[in-house]
């Protein structure tokens, strides 16, 4: 078995990669190299990193438009991710999808999706296919608490429970859906309670400690894989940046953001690693290698070719 310290070093690197990658995307957006909507995951890293650490390669991942982290962790290269946002043909969706629509079939990343809640039934569909074939794959679906108020979510939750599908629903509750705080969108500010209405297991925890996230998601993944039982997890988290790059974020105070930053998952992992005896040198090396990877992916995206005009129609039909 891999030593827990090495595991944490690996997860730490993933979290740092996501953060540096997204800081670089924010910069590229301000330079006009990335267009459209750009939603950053900064602050929420422990959620995707911990959850996906509990998965096997054969499992499926489906998420929202806030999708960079999930793709990067599933194994899509930083180059293919950055190139996608630059609209280049070397991107993971050939420059046709953009920031919100990262897809990677090989790594069973079934996409970033732009219609709030619309993707939740898709994830249940992947779980349905897995059960149909009996191949033991589990589907994990990420969504914001904004999805919890839309019909597609409720329907998928009931169907997954009714048909006993191997799925883990992970609601990333970051307290805001765009500018709307929880208390103005949910009658009961506890999304996990929705599990009660369909008789499935639930869990609810703060996403600060990446290893805890991994362990708690692993329980749900095991339940899905071994018993075909869905779980609804509410992962409490916080995004440091605006909803998207065009959001001035006037609906919350700087004090609130600063207070939340004290719970930073990367700082937390770093502290744990030091406790486990990791040296400055070791951590510095990881950070340097991430920086090199991010620098490389930006250069790659910059230098890559744009998709040809023929791609406008090329993929509309199989």
């Amino acid at each position: 078995m891999q030593d827990e310290r090495d595991v944490l070093l690996g997860l730490y690197r993933q979290m740092v990669l996501i953060r540096r990658f997204e800081e670089a995307s924010a910069k590229a957006y301000s330079q006009g190299k990335i267009g459209g909507f750009l939603h950053l995951y900064i602050g929420q890293e422990a959620c995707a990193v911990g959850a996906l650490a509990a998965l096997e390669k054969r499992d499926y991942v489906v998420t929202t438009y806030r999708d960079h982290a999930q793709a990067l962790i599933r194994g899509t290269s930083a180059r293919a991710c950055m190139a996608e946002m630059f609209g280049k043909v070397t991107g993971c969706s050939k420059g046709l999808g953009g920031s919100m629509h990262f897809f990677d079939a090989e790594n069973r990343m079934l996409g970033g999706h732009g219609i709030v809640g619309g993707h939740v039934p898709l994830a249940a569909g992947a779980a349905f296919a897995s059960k149909y074939r009996g191949d033991g794959a589990v589907a994990v679906c990420f969504f914001g608490e904004g999805s919890a108020t839309i019909g597609a979510f409720s329907e998928a939750l009931n169907l997954a429970a009714l048909w006993k599908l191997p799925i883990v629903f992970i609601c990333e509750n970051n307290e805001y859906s765009m500018g709307t705080p929880l208390e103005r969108s949910l009658a009961v500010a506890d999304v996990s309670q929705k599990a009660l209405s369909v008789g499935i297991e639930r869990d609810r925890f703060r996403c600060t400690d990446v290893l805890e996230v991994r362990d708690r998601v692993a329980v749900a993944v095991k339940r899905a894989r071994e018993k075909n039982e869905p779980t609804l997890i509410e992962a409490l988290t916080y995004r440091y940046r605006g909803h998207s790059m065009s959001d001035p974020g006037k609906y919350r105070t700087q004090d609130e953001i600063e207070a939340r930053k004290k719970d930073d998952p990367i700082a937390r992992a770093e502290a744990s690693l030091r406790g486990m005896g990791a040296s400055d040198d070791e951590l510095a090396k990881i950070n340097a290698s991430v920086e090199a990877e991010v620098e490389d992916c930006v250069k790659f995206a910059d230098e890559s070719a744009e998709p040809d005009e023929s791609l406008i129609e090329a993929f509309n039909y199989a």
């Binding site: 267009g35 459209g36 609209g87 280049k88 969706s93 420059g95 046709l96 999808g97 953009g98 629509h101 744009e306 998709p307 005009e309 791609l311 406008i312 129609e313 509309n316």
Partner: peptide
């Protein structure tokens, strides 16, 4: 508009 789902790439979007 062209008979296709909208591509993200700026050049292709403009052509659509």
């Amino acid at each position: 508009g062209r008979d296709a789902s909208m591509p993200y790439n700026k050049k292709l979007e403009d052509l659509t």
